[in-house]
Nucleic acid binder design. Structure first.
Lengths: 344, 344
DNA sequence: TTGTAGGCGTTATCAT
DNA sequence: ATGATAACGCCTACAA
């Protein structure tokens, strides 16, 4: 059987309170007694207070939950997510906080409700199932939404509208012909590439991508140009292959687009490959602008012109917000900036 | 004040047991009553059983701890680690298991002992502080060590010796001149690049890298050649810049090495860049072989010849082992294989 | 099918 | 400085 604090107390002939103090509040007992207790614990193989019991009693666990919009694995695959997590973990590391990774599969929350284990939540992207959000907000624990907004919860975003605006404005300065957009999650529940046309789009509140689209459109409008929904493609996920596929479709249309505005670098990199495989030269025959500024965007030849968003810093900020280390502003919006390289 | 199961029971005029069953064991009560309870819970804003209390009572949490050898952030940065986590999370996703990421900072375990929260552990790489391992093994929970071995704990490794042997054997078939090794964590507590010389090395038990070194040496010996410790450089971490720096040092020596055996692809990619910056042409002037086969190794020009290790599969296996889904063999060793590309 | 009650292992409060 | 004791919120025999 497992040793408990009580066993140890009995063995030593002291009270459980004292043993507890020996581990958790050294100032409450004499150094000498504490020493004796710790030594005995060591000898008997007692590993310290049971974390579950302690959490129950104390009302907190030292764990922050990260609710990830996508499948868990996606977040280890996509450099955008990875860099965000990297930033979060940097702060958690410093603060001795544990990170519980929670996918947003609804079975999880609706059934098991492990969620109450965490002292707070970072919600990275809008969960597919909205009921999860209800659950989290009902807990009234410190929470931060990232890349979307939720009534009554602090949020952290980049300025997607402005970023997209920069991209489009730069793009049309260099391309006068047809423009196509490779969008990301513009349509709920899509599972494959599709031309947007008259399908209903997500709203600006719930989606980063929609705000990017609005940014593109505003810039075009200001230049007296227009973006027909038929020239917008939607990808359900930010993946190279989907970018390749969508770009291929777009580039086979007439008139062939001269500018591709892509809502992620991974889509853009796929698009570049597709163009090259069709014998097009970038940026001469086709200009491509990405979004995110992932590391590969800079390595790639031609290097990708894109919008930089500070993912790592975003992660750090999110962590600081949820831990209450950042009590200044309520909502935070970080800047996005244009990085001009070779593709446009 | 927070609602508890008891409050809900009182409100409804039923027993706490019934309410508990409504949430956790639907078959124990009439569908009708359950419905009523759930509805009332919804109405009052009761979010389901408190996870901490439930865990205390049940003795398990549905959480698996991942003890990461390095700083937490390193694991989101290094593609080798990332792909491993990706594999783990794939299985956890399916099995409705939560993943608690634990860095191996000792303060954590020695003081707070949050560790007992987990139902089991995957220990990815040897923690810097060995006492952590004592703590974990003392808990007697299902555990798996990855990339190292620990008495009494199931382990998962790739065949590092064989992999390195393949690399070296291939290398000397194409290069007859001087050979240099860019090693990884061959020396404990190193914090920067250093030439190994007569510094003491880690043992084969505790380190992947040492087994790789043995593999290199065995292959060279079989070919009647030798590897002088003066031609081995050590990097404390697998990073591009360290590879660059070490390679630069090595390539400035006389005779200039013709073959670089690198213990990670990131080191190798840095080495390639260093060589190119020195005006060397790969593979004509210098041959480079990496280890890991990270995605970039294939993209890069010249594409990197390297040893493939199935990181994703390794993650899946580790997850299956710790969850007891894999009751066949005790220890597992996965194959590594040579991928010949352009750099050698 | 539903209710009663003891205990999971701690820690905080209040005595002594 | 140390001890006694009552929670923390839930689950599960067992009884009804």
């Amino acid at each position: 059987m497992r040793l408990t604090l009580k066993d140890l107390a009995r063995e030593l002939g002291v009270s459980t309170a004292t043993v507890s103090n020996a581990f958790s509040r050294p100032d409450q007992l004499s150094a000498e007694l504490r020493e004796r207790i710790l030594a005995e614990a060591q000898r008997l193989g007692y590993q310290g207070p049971n974390a579950t019991a302690r959490s129950l009693r104390r009302g907190r666990t030292g764990i922050i939950g990260l609710i990830l919009a996508d499948r868990l694995q996606y977040n280890f695959e996509d450099p955008v997510a990875t860099r965000f997590l990297h930033g979060v973990s940097e702060v958690f590391d410093q603060q001795n906080v544990n990170m519980l990774l929670l996918p947003s599969r609804s079975e999880f929350y609706l059934g098991q409700s492990f969620d109450s284990l965490a002292d707070g939540y970072i919600i990275y992207g809008p969960p597919r199932d909205g009921r999860i959000l209800d659950k989290v907000t009902a807990r009234r624990k410190p929470s931060v939404t990232v890349d979307f907004n939720l009534e009554g919860v602090r949020s952290l975003n980049i300025d997607n509208f402005a970023g997209a605006h920069l991209a489009a404005a730069h793009g049309i300065r260099h391309a006068s012909g047809q423009i196509a957009v490779l969008g990301l999650r513009l349509i709920s529940d899509a599972t494959q590439i599709s031309r947007v046309g008259d399908q209903p789009l997500t709203t600006a509140e719930e989606s980063v991508s929609r705000r990017r689209l609005d940014g593109y459109q505003a810039a075009l409008l200001e230049a007296g140009r227009e973006l027909n929904p038929d020239w917008i493609w939607n990808a359900p996920e930010s993946r190279y292959e989907l970018g390749y596929q969508a770009a291929r479709e777009a580039l086979l249309c007439t008139p062939r687009p001269e500018l591709l505005l892509c809502m992620s670098d991974r889509l853009a990199l796929g698009a570049v490959a597709a163009a090259q495989d069709m014998g097009l030269v970038i940026p001469d025959d086709l200009k491509v602008i990405g979004f995110d500024d992932i590391p590969t965007a800079a390595y790639q030849r031609p290097a990708l012109t894109t919008i930089h968003q500070p993912q790592h810093e975003k992660g750090r900020q999110a962590a600081r917000m949820v831990l209450g280390l950042n009590n200044r502003s309520r909502d935070i919006v970080l800047d996005a900036r244009l990085i001009v390289r070779d593709s446009c």
